[in-house]
Simulated assay, not measured.
Amino acid sequence: MSPMTPAAADAFLRDLHVGVLAVERNSKPPLAVPIWYDVDESGNVIIWTHPDSLKAKLIERAGRASFTVQQEAMPYAYVTVEGHTSRASADDVTARRIAQRYLGENGGDGFLKSNPTDGYVIITIHKDEVRSLTYDE
């Protein structure tokens, strides 16, 4: 087992996975939730969520988060992005890209019609640190 090269870690992160978002809480263990995501041109993780969700509120308070994707079959592997966060109003282009990533073109468009972006936010986890490991031989 060894760390991935930066290029391999970036490619792995861009593959289709459900990610696990982790963010600190004051008096409880960190919140860890599975979530759909995308990756921008700089390798930062982008999520689309409602601003009143627990994850959005905790991220706003903490200003940072961790995000992990993994491969559950041999060769086992993972990439974790740790970083500071920023928040912007959701836009249809980004939300559609995330929905289509997981549901395909028609399914993603249908999902977006049932879940409009009005009032939602895009949260970016800027990659301050990337950790990875692969069990390749």
Rank of each mutant, 00 (worst) to 15 (best):
S2K: 15
T5S: 03
P6Y: 10
A7G: 15
A8P: 10
A9Y: 08
A9G: 02
D15F: 13
L16R: 06
L21I: 12
V23A: 02
N26Y: 13
S27T: 14
K28G: 01
K28H: 07
K28V: 05
P29S: 05
L31K: 00
A32P: 02
I35C: 12
I35V: 05
I35A: 03
D38H: 03
V39T: 07
N44G: 06
I46W: 00
I47G: 02
W48L: 15
P51R: 08
D52A: 15
L54T: 10
L54K: 10
K55R: 10
A56N: 05
L58T: 01
L58R: 07
E60C: 12
F67G: 00
T68E: 07
Q70Y: 09
M74F: 12
P75L: 03
Y78L: 08
Y78T: 11
V79P: 03
T80R: 04
T85D: 13
A88R: 09
S89G: 12
S89P: 14
D92P: 01
V93M: 07
V93E: 12
A95S: 13
A95Q: 09
R96V: 11
R96S: 14
R96T: 08
R97I: 01
A99P: 01
Q100S: 09
E105K: 13
E105L: 11
G107I: 04
G108D: 02
G108T: 09
G108R: 11
D109S: 03
F111Y: 15
F111R: 14
K113G: 13
K113E: 07
K113Y: 04
K113R: 14
N115P: 03
P116Y: 01
T117R: 09
Y120Q: 10
Y120L: 07
V121C: 12
V121Q: 12
I122P: 00
I125L: 09
R131E: 13
R131M: 06
L133A: 14
L133K: 07
T134P: 04
T134H: 12
Y135W: 05
D136C: 07
D136S: 02
E137G: 15
